[in-house]
Computed example of a mutant assay.
Amino acid sequence: MSVTAAQGFVAAGTVAGLKSTGAKDLALVQNLGPASAATAVFTSNRCKANPILWSQQVIADGRVSAIVLNSGGANCYTGSQGFQVTHATAEAVADRLGVSAGDVLVCSTGLIGEQLPLDRLLAGVESAAGALDPTGGHDSAEAIMTTDSRPKEAVVTSDDGWTIGGMAKGAGMLAPGLATMLVVLTTDADLPADILDAALRAATRVSFDRLDSDGCMSTNDQVTLLASGASGVSPAIDDFTVALTGLCRDLALQLQADAEGSSHDIAIEVVNAASERDAEVAGRSVARSNLFKAAVFGNDPNWGRVLAAVGTTDAVFDPYAIDVSINGVQVCRAGEPHESRDLVDLTPRAVHVLIDLHAGDTTATILTNDLTHDYVHENSAYAS
């Protein structure tokens, strides 16, 4: 049931007519309380869509009653008209649910530079509001998909009676600053907004922010966490953060597995780095190497491309002390050839690259995918 697994939430997904395919394209999630604490993290792209600008204002007081999301259009670079559409959408949700528009988050995803039809959005809000239900989580997860091939959902239930549920969309432009994703997380734990914020930032730092499919950052990314308090349980922040992090990693892996046209899911694990930042920078450099990603697509364990990518960073390491293993075969030891690359099997979808910098004791893992013909084709025709 994803976002409706936690007590105190209802959701719906409906057809507003924003997609030419006639698929569901508008989702609505309402927090019934008794609490309405919330937090969110947003894209770090300076070019932000109208819904991001609106939602950043709404979330400032840590209180949210509902969130409405549409696919079929990003409402980005659509000027004052686009912002008015966002405002009107929030007002429509507020009027229908009997809440304040200032407590309604708005999210959009799709093509940049196209106006959204307000009449269809408003009709979609009316339809979704009438269909809100505790079992509507899956429909809402379907409604936020764009190029996704399947909805992404996850649930974690604690032993002491509180639950976290979540849904996500995203299949391309996956890079830090949250990737091109919309994520809604709900919990019936009774926690204030500041605790939710600390937990969410800790969780996204090692999950969504470590997903780097193609190095491209979206204008519409938003991860939202809503708390109803309906369980009556106030867990320790450490326990809640661990559970939230696990759920976010689950959703991040689902996003990675559905990356547009990919044929390999690649985990780049950097170990023994001088700092977490160094480990992340080194791993991300490999994840953004088109040469490396093309080699994996061709089942070629070209470890030289790994070293070449790491060498472009300012991470602390001795270039001639690095070890590299691919799918369990140590193809490079201390900057020299070791086991034969012919021993590496890249036919499975899962690929694990282990890079040992021998410079410290810190680790980070970056998730990416290979560069395929299908990825190029899909993104060459996205607007058509």
Rank of each mutant, 00 (worst) to 15 (best):
G130S: 08
Q81K: 09
A35T: 10
L196A: 14
D356Q: 13
A37G: 10
T347M: 01
V353M: 08
A230N: 11
V29Q: 05
G261W: 02
N75Q: 01
L247K: 06
I67Y: 05
H358W: 08
L178N: 03
S228V: 09
A199W: 06
A227Q: 09
A179L: 06
N379M: 10
N379E: 05
S263M: 08
V85S: 11
S285F: 02
P176G: 00
V344K: 11
S71Q: 09
Y382K: 11
V155D: 06
L255S: 05
D361H: 15
A193L: 13
I112H: 07
T372H: 07
L182G: 13
F208C: 14
S36F: 13
V331A: 04
T89N: 06
C47E: 11
G22P: 10
G215S: 08
Y320D: 12
A334G: 11
G335W: 11
D300R: 02
V344N: 08
E336F: 14
N31F: 02
V155A: 09
E269C: 06
D361T: 15
D323R: 10
P51L: 06
A171R: 04
E142P: 02
S380Q: 13
A27F: 00
F83A: 15
V15M: 05
N31W: 02
V106K: 01
A230Y: 13
A364R: 12
I112D: 09
E260S: 04
T241A: 14
C216D: 15
A364W: 01
A88R: 15
F208K: 10
G360Q: 09
L122K: 15
G232Q: 05
S262Q: 04
V68Y: 00
F292H: 02
G72S: 07
V376H: 10
L118E: 13
K48V: 13
F208E: 14
D278G: 04
D221G: 00
V183W: 01
R284T: 11
G102Y: 04
A321Q: 14
L196F: 10
A308H: 02
L182Q: 05
V310L: 04
A273T: 06
S275N: 11
A128L: 06
K169P: 04
D209C: 01
A282W: 03
L247N: 10
S20D: 13
G232F: 03
D238H: 12
A279I: 04
R288L: 14
V183L: 03
D314L: 07
V106M: 04
A189I: 12
S100C: 07
D250K: 07
